[in-house]
């Protein structure tokens, strides 16, 4: 298989076709922050934290590295004042939903994000979709899914499946970047609604 040569943060990096920029960077030991990425799952491009600058034929643009395929002769920058500013704003927006998330807190400290910049509307879920995708792609149980859309979108356990499967699995809980209490809470809620119905 032919190899692709590109440059990330001034370091020459070799990638194989089909690799994303994020995978190429991580393989070369360079770190890009992510929330919604998981090695075992299809790229999702949900959190946008892995945004990087790509220079190609003299033009610079911003791309999301977890879904952008590595290509020959790209010049990639994973940190720049512009990228840092965007990551800071993304973090501030996410922190409005999950102010107490340790993972978000670490990143906020690194990028100087102010957790109180936006009015807090704690929903705990930042819609990274890790639990939903893990359950669907890895476990193939589909015990948890999204419902609604836009500002009312939320994760929801299906009581019928959750009652049967979730107690002995719970593999999605540690994946949650905010707090798995959220997942636990929704699970309990789901179980209770089954009891109510039966």
């Amino acid at each position: 298989m032919s190899e692709i040569q590109l440059e990330i943060d001034g370091t020459p990096v070799t990638a194989t076709p089909g690799m994303t920029l994020l995978e190429a960077a991580r393989a070369a030991g360079l770190s890009i922050p992510t929330l919604c990425h998981h090695e075992g799952l299809e790229p999702y491009g949900g959190c946008r934290l892995c945004i990087v600058e790509v220079e190609q034929r003299g033009r610079t643009r911003l791309v999301v590295s977890c879904v952008f395929p590595a290509a020959a002769d790209l010049v990639v920058r994973t940190r720049s004042p512009k990228i840092d500013r965007m990551r800071k704003t993304i973090l501030e927006l996410l922190l409005a939903h999950a102010p107490h998330s340790p993972r978000l807190g670490e990143l906020a400290a690194e990028y100087g994000a102010d957790p109180n910049r936006f009015e807090q509307e704690a929903a705990f879920c930042v819609h990274c979709g890790l639990c939903v995708r893990y359950c669907a792609e890895v476990k193939q149980l589909h015990a948890v899914g999204f419902i609604d859309r836009g500002i009312t979108k939320e994760i929801s356990f299906l009581p019928e499946i959750a009652l049967r499967e979730c107690n002995r699995c719970k593999e999605c809980f540690p994946l949650c970047p905010t707090s798995y209490l959220q997942a636990a809470f929704v699970l309990v809620e789901g179980l209770m609604s089954t009891n109510g119905r039966a």
Partner: peptide
């Protein structure tokens, strides 16, 4: 189709 998906579409 997984019920989770049907539910997502029905509420979307």
């Amino acid at each position: 189709v997984p019920l989770a998906r049907v539910q997502h579409i029905a509420t979307f």
